[in-house]
């Protein structure tokens, strides 16, 4: 007896073959050229990621001009806080120090963003202030030097 293959099988095999071929052809065109160059990602994405303009200069760039602040900061509790944490991104200021002024934040709210009383923070790690009770109406920097918080101003 001749081996019988039902017509459905041959037609479905053809349909699946077309589908798989189409998938492979599409895949060929859709997979980015540099995919897999270094790992399971598009190699050229490294170049894309290197493109954005630089915003932060890093504190070593600040200390080149502001040696005095470096010395002050080193002596007190803010020594581990980098300049741009409070002053914002400073790359532009580093390049054009005359025209691009650096941010000088002030006000109780700003200092409060770290020092406001919060049950989730350990008091031994960070000093916490109840802004509703502590010297109301006064700005923090009237008494504290932000670079040297415990060197109280007169």
């Amino acid at each position: 007896m001749k081996f019988y293959i039902p017509p459905q099988i041959t037609r479905l095999a053809l349909a699946f073959a077309i589908f798989i071929t189409l998938f492979l052809v599409l895949r060929h065109f859709l997979v980015p050229k540099t995919f897999g160059e270094y790992g399971h990602y598009r190699g050229a994405s490294l170049i894309d990621n290197a493109q954005p303009e630089i915003h932060y200069a890093g504190q070593q760039a600040c200390f080149k001009c502001h040696q005095d602040i470096e010395d002050k900061k080193a002596q007190d509790v803010h020594s581990e806080i980098h300049c741009e944490t409070c002053h914002g991104p400073g790359e532009k200021h580093v390049v054009l120090s005359k025209t691009e002024k650096i941010l000088k934040p002030a006000g109780r709210e700003f200092c409060g963003s770290c020092h406001v009383i919060n049950a989730g923070k350990q008091k031994s790690m960070i000093n916490q202030i109840d802004l509703n009770k502590h010297n109301i109406g006064k700005n923090c920097i009237e008494c504290h030097n932000p670079h040297q918080p415990w060197e109280m101003k007169k």
């Binding site: 039902p6 017509p7 459905q8 099988i9 037609r11 479905l12």
Partner: peptide, 18 residues
């Protein structure tokens, strides 16, 4: 139907079997 127009008992039997 993908062009499979055969409705002979044998083919229909295969429909059921498959």
């Amino acid at each position: 139907t993908l062009g499979v127009n055969d409705i002979s008992p044998r083919t229909i039997h295969w429909d059921r079997k498959l």
